[in-house]
């Protein structure tokens, strides 16, 4: 028996909206500790990893680990039927479920929707992601980072991110010209302005902006985003989800010649 009830169902809707352009089908692994999901994009350039802890759910029960193979497109269609204020419950009684039940309830419990989504059997391609001690970590407004990526992607497809003790520089070079945006440490009390740099080792890495713009669809999940980098390592972009878990994106760097 597996049942997970999320008080703020809108969070689940936002997560699916944030990843639906990147991955087509995913395995959600349910265990006693919560839900986890990991999937690569079709080009194997990026990886998304979701972890939702059981104690972030209103109700959570998972008698034994199960894997739920879902088409993101079909999941999206079902979630469109959930209101932003609804609670969302996922449920199945079977050990090898062929479908997953969804219940959407409005606040007054006066409207209850029930859907059953057919499951897919997907071979698990899960990669081992070592816990990395990143040498450059940037915490900043997710809206600001999303804006920087959007603006720079009109000049070039790739952005070079260079960190130093007191600032991070986003540089682009394209046919029309070049540009850079430098953001300094800023302990402002205004969320949108605050920038927190922890630079043990400066890095200079180049990434495809198309992927960063896709990752930034998660901006509605958290007002802050963290960029985690080490030389010769994929960038890890993390959106923490209050009291529930985190949505992480990994992006392989461009190999600068």
């Amino acid at each position: 028996m597996f049942e997970a009830k999320l008080q703020q169902g809108v969070i689940f809707k936002k997560i699916v909206d944030a990843i639906k352009d990147l991955v087509k089908s995913v395995n959600i692994d349910a265990s006693t500790s919560g839900l986890s999901m990991q999937a690569m994009d079709s080009a194997h350039v990026a990886l998304v990893s979701l972890k939702l802890n059981e104690n972030g759910f209103k109700d959570y029960r998972c008698d034994r680990p199960i894997t739920l193979g879902l088409s993101i497109e079909n999941l999206s269609k079902i979630l469109k039927c959930a209101g932003n204020d609804d609670t969302i419950t996922l449920q199945t009684d079977e050990e090898e479920p062929s479908s997953l039940k969804f219940f959407f309830e409005n606040q007054q419990a006066s409207k209850i929707s029930e859907f059953s989504l057919n499951l897919m059997s997907l071979d698990s391609e899960s990669l081992g992601i070592p816990d990395t001690d990143y040498s450059s970590v940037i915490q900043m407004s997710s809206a600001e980072f999303s804006r920087i990526c959007k603006e720079l992607s009109s000049i070039s497809e790739t952005v070079e991110i260079e960190t130093s003790k007191e600032s991070v520089k986003f540089s682009v070079q394209g046919d029309i010209g070049a540009g850079s945006i430098t953001v300094k440490n800023n302990q402002s009390d205004k969320d949108v302005d605050r920038v927190d740099l922890q630079i043990d080792q400066p890095v200079k890495l180049t990434f495809a902006l198309r992927y960063l713009n896709m990752f930034n669809k998660a901006v509605s999940l958290s007002s802050t985003v963290s960029l985690n980098m080490s030389e010769e390592n994929p960038l890890m972009v993390e959106y923490k989800i209050d009291d529930l878990g985190s949505l992480r994106f990994y992006l392989a760097p461009k190999i600068s010649d």
């Binding site: 690569m40 194997h44 990886l47 391609e125 990669l127 992601i129 495809a208 392989a252 190999i255």
Partner: peptide, 14 residues
């Protein structure tokens, strides 16, 4: 031109 690297170069199959 910069070549795009692949994520499964960095992280191995479990």
């Amino acid at each position: 031109l910069t070549e795009q690297d692949y994520i499964n170069i960095f992280y191995k199959q479990d």
